[in-house]
Design a protein around this nucleic acid. Structure first.
Length: 520
RNA sequence: GGCCCUAUCGUCUAACGGUUAGGACACCAGAUUUUCAAUCUGGUAAUCAGGGUUCGAUUCCCUGUAGGGUCACCA
């Protein structure tokens, strides 16, 4: 028995001409959510018909980005070798899963040739011998008189014999679709509602360079049909391609999928999103230390909301609450501040062990630490062994201050330094004189050295507070102490830091602060 | 220029035709604090304009304005 609950199938069909874009993330997300929510499937197809711009490296990165974000697909390419490396195509192999492959359009030429030939045979398509220049000139003329700039050449009416002759003479040609005249194309967009087009505004568009090289609108329409796609969710930039694809599908008598066009993600002033506004490449975000869960949550809310006050969503929760009706009709400006806030929030929620694992690559890359064994590292400056748990303790102090993982290096570099490099004036709290500062630091020295077995935060605090409260301002003791230990304008609290550094290091740093005051 | 689409705080957005137009980020102030964060409390801030329809429009309709998309032998 059939029912009206069709088996929903969506796809993400990127072309591997660059890194994953933030807008692409949203396209995958919504396709993924829409199908999974309905218990359907989601597939990945690589649209690499543009051989000039398509690169295997980009495809590799695209797939890895999708994995990193937490997506999976029931059909499409899957990396079987080269999972580890970041941008290494040499050692990269892919395997297809699914019954409707191959899933790279560059490997589907047989399919396209077949359909193309059919169209040529039944007259739905024809060879056009006009040159690019002729078509261009015609286009600008039509625009100048206020008409739709469409192909109005004469090749549409060439006889079979004329075509044969031209072909035989080796004249360059393309294959155009014979667009039916004065036909209304109507489709009900899941997001935008009913959209109507008149076929006269698109003219006879090119569907293939030749039998071997089909073009986007054609391959897309054919593959959506061949692969059983029921719902096409994509960016708004595709609305004007939709009537073309529908016409193509119609010419074969194929059923059209349901379309949904999402508004674009915009930059400042509702202009096209550019480098000025934010990084556009997902990989940049990964490198800077944004967490996939933050990016997913952020992107989901760019143009969608659950209609409640809930704003924190995991993928599972999105799967639960997502509904396409709640997608916004107008474009949303990318708000980097909100992403940072969300990312900080997810960082704060992380288990410290996991956060440490995520942060270590940044510490290594910045040259602060070197890997020694699985659980120990080497401080590059001091040559000391640093254990994983020591690093973990340092990171814990800064967990709530972190907005991106990459910031960790500037926060905790002081822990692993031999000498701190800071201006003498940084030691000054309010308007303390050098003499007062020296006295303050010497007092700290005394306090620190008086503690032996009990070098803990609480005992340090008790001890220091007892002295500090006797002063006009607690900062007189605590500020110079903290600066001496960290060399920084701002940092975690002095007792946490002291405990982290240990007694010996504290004393050494206090000593060098005093020297700095005395001899410079 | 033709065609298509859109319009609520600075930003993302909520509001069966009836709300003191709500929330979040950002911002400002206060609390906390040795600093910076985090946290808590409070605050500033919006229905593009003009016409209709209606007892009553943010909401429906029209016009204007502004913005976006597209018009490839790219996808």
């Amino acid at each position: 028995m059939t029912n009206n609950l069709e088996n929903i199938k969506t796809r993400f069909a990127p072309s591997p001409t660059g890194p994953m874009h933030i807008g692409g993330v949203r396209t995958v997300l919504f396709n993924y959510l829409y199908s999974h929510k309905a218990g359907g499937s989601f597939i990945l197809r690589i649209e690499d018909t543009d051989t000039e711009r398509s690169k295997k490296e980009w495809e590799h990165m695209l797939i890895k980005s999708l994995k990193w974000l937490g997506f999976d697909w029931s059909e499409g390419p899957e990396i079987v070798k080269g999972q580890e490396s970041l941008f290494d195509s040499a050692d990269y192999t892919v395997r297809y899963k699914g019954e409707n492959g191959p899933y790279r359009q560059s490997e589907r030429k047989d399919v396209y040739r077949n359909y193309l030939q059919q169209m040529l045979d039944n007259g739905h398509a024809y060879h056009c011998f006009c040159t690019k220049e002729e078509v261009e000139a015609q286009k600008s003329y039509l625009m100048s008189i206020g008409e739709s700039p469409v192909y109005k050449g004469s090749c549409r009416n060439l006889t079979k014999e004329q075509v044969e002759e031209n072909l035989k003479a080796g004249k360059r040609s393309v294959i155009r679709f014979r667009t039916p005249e004065n036909q209304k194309i109507v489709f009900d967009d899941m997001i935008k509602g009913r959209i109507e087009f008149d076929s006269s505004i698109m003219g006879d568009f090119v569907i293939a360079k030749d039998l071997e090289n089909a073009l986007f609108n054609f391959t897309c329409a054919i593959d959506d049909h061949e692969m059983g796609i029921t719902h096409v969710i994509r960016g708004e930039d595709h609305v004007s391609n939709t009537p073309k694809q529908i016409l193509l599908l119609n010419s074969f008598g194929f059923k059209k999928p349901t379309y949904g066009h999402m508004p674009l993600i915009l930059g400042q002033g509702k202009k096209k999103l550019s480098k000025r506004d934010a990084e556009t490449s997902l990989d940049e975000y990964r490198k800077e230390g944004y967490l996939p869960e933050a990016i997913i949550n952020f992107v989901a809310f760019l143009g969608w909301n659950p209609g409640t006050d809930k704003e924190l969503y995991s993928m599972d929760e999105l799967l639960n609450d997502f509904s396409i009706e709640k997608i916004q009709k107008s474009g949303a400006i990318f708000n980097a501040d909100k992403l940072d806030w969300l990312n900080g929030l997810y960082i704060r929620k992380k288990q410290i062990g996991e956060l440490t694992t995520l942060c270590i690559p940044y510490l290594i890359e910045s040259g602060i630490l070197k890997k020694e064994t699985d659980i120990s590292y080497l401080s590059v400056e001091t040559d000391e062994i640093v254990t994983l748990s020591q690093i973990e303790r340092a990171i814990r102090l800064y967990q709530e201050r972190l907005k991106k993982l990459s910031e960790i290096t500037d926060f905790i570099d002081f822990v692993f330094k031999k000498e701190l490099d800071y201006e003498k004036s940084l030691l000054v709290w309010k308007s303390m004189t050098d003499e007062e500062l020296i006295a303050s630091l010497e007092l700290s020295q005394g306090l620190v050295s008086s503690l032996d077995d009990d070098f803990e935060e609480e005992s340090l605090q008790n001890m220091f507070f007892k002295e500090a409260e006797a002063m006009p301002n607690k900062g007189n003791l605590l500020w110079p102490f903290r600066v001496a230990l960290t060399g920084k304008q701002s940092s975690a609290g002095p007792f946490e830091v002291a405990r982290l550094l240990g007694k010996e290091k504290c004393l050494r740093r206090l000593e060098s602060a005093i020297k700095k005051l005395k001899y410079s």
